[in-house]
Design a binder for these strands. Structure first.
Lengths: 204, 204
DNA sequence: CAGAATACTGAACAGTGTTCAGTAAATCAA
DNA sequence: TTGATTTACTGAACACTGTTCAGTATTCTG
């Protein structure tokens, strides 16, 4: 009975259409610009239809972020497979992280710069998906640092502490550049490389 | 004619009441929790009355942030006047910055972690007040770094570049700790001190 | 062809920031 | 003490927001 399969396919198609319309709005102006009614109008369905596919707005945008952060993960994986030295790999990974955030500011801001108070009356499940977005890339950072320690190219220290501290720093670079768009930063390329020099240097 | 003065005083009193009610709501749950109707109810006035004292919600919350960031400025000034060595002063200032952010998460997040797309249809004037909140403390950081360079306790380098890079890093510590409240950080005290070691160390 | 399952909608609820005509009170000039 | 004017304030409305749910219309099944 191919009916069930066709139905599932149609359901998935509509789901993708919703995600597509939401992605457009999200890319344009971030989370606040995504509205159920705007999505509904773009895909020519009633707003309530969206709730047959997603339990709330956070889950919907969360899916967009999960998908996009998977791209970061792929990039980090690609770097790992280049066969560079542990330190070069680490440095390239940190740089890729910053570049990713600057390429997808809406996603980065939503995942890492949104106060959790915004998720007050939201299903726990939806929120956890958002929190989880960056976890895999953090694990990669930790692994990269572990390799450097093992190779003896950075100082031996508590891995978790070192990883969290390092993440906080590159998060600062990324978040600062991405949210404070009207701050008169010096040449951003120079600023990033200088900061990476300091961050990596302070590991040695 | 004392009438005009009394009127001005009464106007200022109501203004302060509005700010007071807004401050409560802002402290509790951040910007999203501040609503004109909630404020109005607390002070027993109509919502529209608020607009006789503030041109929009951003300006209202912006005033709260300006006032609170002045407190950071005082703290940094106090540290400067302790007569410590340039490096100790710098370190204490960075620490005070992070502590401030953790003490006033709503203010810190609103000023530094809010995407500017949220201020789309808002009066420019209101937004500029928000952007300006942290400027004075950034200037102090720059001055502190200049003193260190002058004293020869940190490496000589482009001051603006060094200051921006340093700010991005402590911003990362602050913002990360304050927004990612459900991330399983290691002991935060240790994490902050370790990160400061690295940040200050990478200046030398 | 009747009945069950599925897909979808329209209207409503409760909230948001903001505007503005209109009212009520206080002050001033005659 | 009037009448005019200024000031303070409000209520209702506008245009949005996320979300829910009874009800309809369509499609598939036995």
């Amino acid at each position: 009975m191919g009916v069930a399969q066709r139905r599932a396919r149609e359901k998935d198609e509509l789901r993708r259409k919703i995600l597509g319309a939401a992605a457009e709005l999200f890319l344009e102006e971030g989370y606040q610009n995504v509205s159920m009614r705007k999505i509904a109008e773009r895909i020519e369905y009633a707003p309530s239809t969206i709730y047959l596919h997603f339990q709330d707005k956070v889950q919907l945008v969360g899916y967009l972020c999960t998908e996009t952060f998977a791209e970061l993960d792929r990039r980090l994986e690609d770097i790992m497979e280049l066969g560079l030295s542990p330190l070069e790999t680490l440095r390239k990974s940190l740089r890729a992280y910053i570049d990713f955030g600057r390429e997808y500011p809406s996603h980065y801001i939503f995942v890492f710069c949104t106060p959790e108070s915004l998720f007050k009356n939201i299903e726990k499940e939806s929120c956890q998906a958002v929190y989880g977005c960056g976890m895999s890339s953090f694990e990669r950072l930790k692994a990269g640092l572990a390799e450097c320690m093992h190779a003896g190219v950075i100082r031996e220290a508590d891995l978790e502490l070192t990883a969290q501290s390092t993440w906080l720093m590159i998060h600062g670079i990324t978040a600062g550049l991405v949210t404070c768009t009207s701050f008169p930063f010096v040449d951003k390329e120079l600023l990033i490389e200088h900061s990476l020099d300091r961050i990596v240097g302070s590991l040695q």
